[in-house]
Nucleic acid binder design. Structure first.
Length: 488
RNA sequence: CGGGGUGUAGCGUAGUCCGGUUAUCGCGCCUGGUUUGGGACCAGGAAAUCGUAGGUUCAAAUCCUACCACCCCGACCA
């Protein structure tokens, strides 16, 4: 198998090759849509399982709404239309027919009202909330759905941006502002906790500026990460919707004093984009590197043998090792195929990012040892196989921590404080990453910087370091630094 | 959606300008054998409606038209 393109050579190519060669996903012949393969989908399932538990632990129930949204419903919230109308797939007909040996759309089967394929479900959900919510006793409503959405993106990239994407969207309704804001922040914290502790990706929490805010939200909370090439990626959002959707869909409740009030809302989501971030953050020129908590296979065992008899002897020991690992809830795959050489397998599992590889040959067998190789730093050590039940779990924990530590160091190196606009441009071009700079708080300045440098304000950090300064562009006074970066 | 490029076996390609036998080579795949501690070797074999649909021609991978998909650069965006 050919060598992987290195990150330095061509970062985009490296990224695409990892996805294809590690068997995560492939492009389909549908524009911008990908086929997620078993190994890639297994990662998504892990993400789903862990987050699903966290959502349920905080009182959320799963539901399912239709894929289609009638056009009239979709058009009710003005900002929302502005934000999404440019990228909607629309169903206009419901029947095909044969004509001259071709299949054509039956012109007689035109829909009375067109259906929008959901780019997100706020509209249909708030339309439904109108029926569900009458009294303060009906609130809060805390629901989530795992679904697919369609956004007709101009420029797609496997996992990072696809026309169809799998995600989770939470939609909650509350009696008051405080509770809704609390919910939005709570979900941002759940995402942060998951992404840092399971995906081993350090993030920055913040709020979006008015320009970058979700269409229809009052406040968009977000988490941002920086990739190895210095580009930023938004990897999760949580929106405080205020009363925008309740007003657009006329969703009111009677409060405990008998008065009518509009409902307060939130929505929040993460998508298969997380897998894109996972690949970009940890992987190296040998291939994928997966954090143990999300790896579909945590350990792989490679036997090294010269004949059937030797393989039998190794397999006998391996079956013990497999049992020990299973008792410790560690997933294990024993690759005893003899069509590939050990060397081929070493490369294969490094490409696939399996956190720990265990090599067992006849030489080791005689010494009662196995060789353990870490994927994160490729270090090797020999271990007596009586200690495997102790060492492997410890090592997985260490790898998990080490991946986060490495990512954190890289992230911190990518944060540069800048106070001069020329310096700002210089850092952007030479180093990339996040730039912490003062901003006067106006959309006008934000737009000008974007036009000039293709850089956006990724977020206004939640952890406020109150510091007076002057806007990097306009020189006007500023109370806080914000994160600028070029983004995916 | 604007500018540029690409599409030939699962992947990477030669051939396309200048139409002419059976479409080239490598990897992969299948069979048999020898191998097996960092991507093994030998021998044999299978696999292509040349992106799709029309057109020009005695003849199209090659020329023309339309469409589709992908890649790069912009604009849009999770």
């Amino acid at each position: 198998m050919a060598q992987l393109t290195s990150r330095r050579e061509d970062y985009s190519k490296w990224y695409n090759e990892i996805i294809i060669k590690a068997n995560l996903a492939e492009t389909s012949n549908v524009r911008g849509c990908m086929i997620i393969k078993p190994y890639g989908f297994a990662i998504w399932e892990k993400i789903q399982n862990i987050l699903n538990k966290k959502f349920k632990n905080t009182g959320h129930d799963n539901i399912y709404f239709p894929l289609f949204i009638p056009k009239s419903l979709f058009s009710k919230e003005a900002c929302h239309i502005d934000g999404f109308s440019q990228e909607c797939a629309v169903v206009t007909h419901y029947r095909l027919k044969k004509k001259d040996n071709n299949i054509i759309i039956d012109p007689e089967a035109k829909l009375e009202e067109e259906l929008i394929v959901r780019p997100t479900s706020e509209t249909i959900i708030w339309h439904t909330y109108r029926r569900w919510i009458k009294s303060y006793r009906d609130l809060p409503i805390l629901i989530n759905q795992w679904a697919n959405i369609i956004r007709w993106e101009m420029h797609t990239r496997l996992f990072l941006r696809t026309s169809e994407c799998l995600w989770q969207e939470g939609h909650t309704a509350h009696t008051n502002k405080k509770e809704a804001v609390c919910e939005a922040k709570q979900m941002l914290n759940i995402y942060t906790n998951f992404i840092e502790n399971y995906m081993a990706i350090p993030v920055i929490q913040g709020v979006k500026t008015a320009i970058e805010r979700f269409a229809g939200a009052e406040e968009t909370y977000c988490i941002e990460a920086i990739m190895q090439n210095g580009k930023a990626l938004q990897i999760g959002t949580s929106h405080f919707l205020g009363q925008n959707f309740s007003k657009a869909f006329n969703v009111k409740f009677t409060n405990n004093k008998g008065y009518q009030e509009y409902v307060w809302g939130t929505s929040w989501g993460i998508s298969t984009r997380l897998i894109g971030a996972l690949i970009m953050i940890h992987s190296d020129d040998k291939g994928l590197v997966l954090p143990p908590k999300l790896a579909p296979i945590q350990t792989v065992i490679i036997p090294i043998f010269k004949n059937e008899e030797q393989l039998k002897r190794i397999t006998k020991i391996v079956s013990n090792i497999k049992n020990i690992l299973k008792e410790n809830n560690i997933s294990v795959f024993y690759d005893d195929r003899n069509i590939y050489t050990p060397g081929w397998k070493f490369n294969e599992y490094e490409l696939k990012g399996v956190p720990i590889r265990i090599n067992i040959g006849i030489k080791d067998l005689e010494k009662g040892m196995v060789e353990i190789v870490r994927r994160d730093n490729l270090n090797k050590q020999f271990v007596n196989y009586n200690y495997i039940g102790k060492i492997i779990p410890e090592l997985l924990t260490i790898i998990q921590k080490n991946l986060f530590k490495k990512a954190l160091e890289r992230r911190n190196n990518f944060i540069t404080k800048v106070d001069d606009y020329n310096e700002f441009k210089k850092i952007l071009n030479e180093k990339g990453g996040f730039i912490l700079a003062h901003w006067d708080g106006t959309s006008e300045t934000e737009k000008k910087i974007k036009l000039d440098t293709k850089t956006t304000i990724r977020c206004i950090p939640l952890k406020k370091s109150k510091e007076k300064g002057k806007c990097i562009y306009s020189g006007k006074p500023s109370n806080q630094r914000v994160f600028f970066a070029k983004a995916y």
